[in-house]
Design a protein around this nucleic acid. Structure first.
Lengths: 328, 328
DNA sequence: CTGAAAGCGCTTACAG
DNA sequence: CTGAAAGCGCTTACAG
């Protein structure tokens, strides 16, 4: 399957086919359509480049990496595009930065879970490789394409669920302020409290890292307060599992003595005892959307939306129930 | 970086450099060495092919896919080889099989977690693409390269651990007989019992699928027997988590009333309550070894070993203890 | 063993 | 908008 065969069959010259394939101007719509029809009929594919895209991770996450990969794979397969998987994180030692290798491969587009630096983004732009940032953790300049989740709405929904169950003293284990999605979840929590006419007690908000151990420590602090919270909303599922540990150590039963809500809906949360009520992030769909967007940009299409957030949903399981003796 | 630049610098003709790069004959050792030195000095790489390898999954596994990917990534990065990730499983609808796309990409080599058919293996051989089977589930013909784990030894170690704790009525929830690693684990269990002079009660072995739900059902059956086993060895961690469910439902405490051992050491097993004693499969190291092997085959090297199994190790956590009243 | 020559698939600059 | 012409990077067949 060569350009010359396509050209002969279409009754046009080789350069014309070349232009169509590379999306250049200077071809009439008619001719373009005819050539494109033949290209898809014969399954012609450029050998050198542009039938590959790249999925870049900072570090492959144990818990949710697979769901992202699955979404990217699905869409890439539909478009007959191969996916090169790259991990940036673990090595800084060798002189060459992994981004150089990504650049050298000239992928059709990049979906990046890693937070690229301004410089790295410029490098990609310079090589005309469009990219989409997956679930950005920091504020991005306008015009940088991204796909995220509705973190604020998720935090709000989780908190409202607890309020509707009758909880009044609802604590939050929040994440680091520098991580954008953590701030959004915290603000969602506050917003739900405010909407319900409840005052947010600053003493019931603890900022800590997104690990199980930090969740445990924070929960122990909260649960040892004079007026114990009846519910804890954790910024992510790992922290929520730390709350489980703390509750066990303090002899508190979930959900009878303490309701717990997490965030992320990791596969493991359905398997713990009791199964965790948590805010579901549609990671696979987010990854699929990011890939569609990146591929569209790679084809040079004008996309109406370069940034979007997909809706989170509350998955109610068994770690939440009405408080035993409603306070106040 | 072009062939002509290398040729000029080396003081040879372009065809000569081309021959060196493609590993063809008709170049003197001297010339070849000189050209190769320049190629590695300037980091010249063929654009078309052979700086990519392919990692093929049947279906991306929630629980351990990431660990495999991580091992492959690490080694591929060291060798400056990109990794294309492909998922075979979920689609049969489109006429073209994913293997065709893998073949069309002409990777330097393939590491496959999917069980390839004889025909698919032949296709790869025909295109001169070497491959290594990761953790084969069925018997492979001699000479097919593979990397697995010592399943028999793992099953033996798990069972011996229970025997050493004083257990005598040790049940096993085994996997399907057609899956090779399940048979090996079962035989390891039997072998440990025999070595300890214990008779294997066939009534204490249940064959079922490798899911949590099947583990739960099997465990309920076992725990309702007149002479209840004091320990259960499950063929994988998901089944072991099903045993946890069953124990909870029957009001049995782990490990006081029942010891449980799993197999795989999924990340989640450290997080459940109590943390699960399980046989660790070195998935990342297995993946790294498979990749080293595949890349070596791709370079046309003679490798001393085309099949190997990496050692499993027993990870003792808190789901095993001596039986409360040792039977007999 | 070496490289001049022909050729392949593709792109680019430009004349019409 | 179209394609003849020149050119690029590489490979192949073959003369020396």
């Amino acid at each position: 399957m060569t350009i010359s065969y396509i050209a002969e069959t279409a009754g046009v010259s080789i350069p014309t086919v070349s232009k169509v394939i590379n999306g250049r101007s200077g071809v009439s719509p008619d001719t373009r359509a005819r050539v494109e029809a033949l290209i898809s009929e014969y399954g012609y594919r450029k050998v050198n480049r542009r039938n590959m895209m790249e999925l870049v991770f900072g570090e492959l996450e144990d818990m949710w990496g697979i769901e992202v990969i699955r979404g990217v794979e699905r869409v890439a397969r539909e478009h007959r595009v191969g996916v090169v998987l790259t991990e940036f994180g673990p090595r800084r030692d060798t002189g060459e930065h992994p981004i150089d290798e990504t650049l050298a491969r000239r992928p059709a587009c990049v979906v990046t879970v890693a937070q690229l630096s301004e410089e790295q983004r410029d490098q990609l732009r310079a090589k005309d490789i469009p990219f989409v940032v997956f679930d950005p953790t920091t504020e991005l300049p306008d015009g940088v394409p991204f796909v995220g989740a509705t973190n604020w709405a998720g935090g709000r929904a989780a908190t409202r669920h607890l309020i509707e169950l009758g909880h009044r003293r609802i604590a939050m284990i929040a994440g680091p302020d520098r991580v954008l999605c953590c701030r959004a979840r915290l603000d969602g929590y506050r917003s739900a409290l405010e909407a319900a006419g409840l005052s947010a007690d600053p003493g019931l908000v603890v900022r800590t890292d997104l690990t199980r151990e930090d969740g445990r420590t924070a929960a122990i602090g909260l649960l040892n307060r004079a007026e114990r919270p009846t519910a804890i909303f954790a910024c992510n599922d790992l922290q929520a599992l730390g709350v489980y540990q703390a509750a066990r150590e303090l002899g508190l039963r979930i959900p009878v003595d303490l309701s717990v809500v997490g965030f992320d809906d990791l596969p493991i949360t359905a398997l713990v005892d009791p199964p965790l009520t948590t805010v579901h992030q549609p990671l696979t769909e987010m990854a699929a959307a990011a890939t569609e967007l990146a591929l569209a940009l790679g084809r040079g299409e004008e996309t109406p939306q370069v940034g979007l957030e997909l809706a989170t949903t509350l998955t109610v399981r068994e770690s939440t129930s009405p408080p035993v003796c409603p306070p106040e």
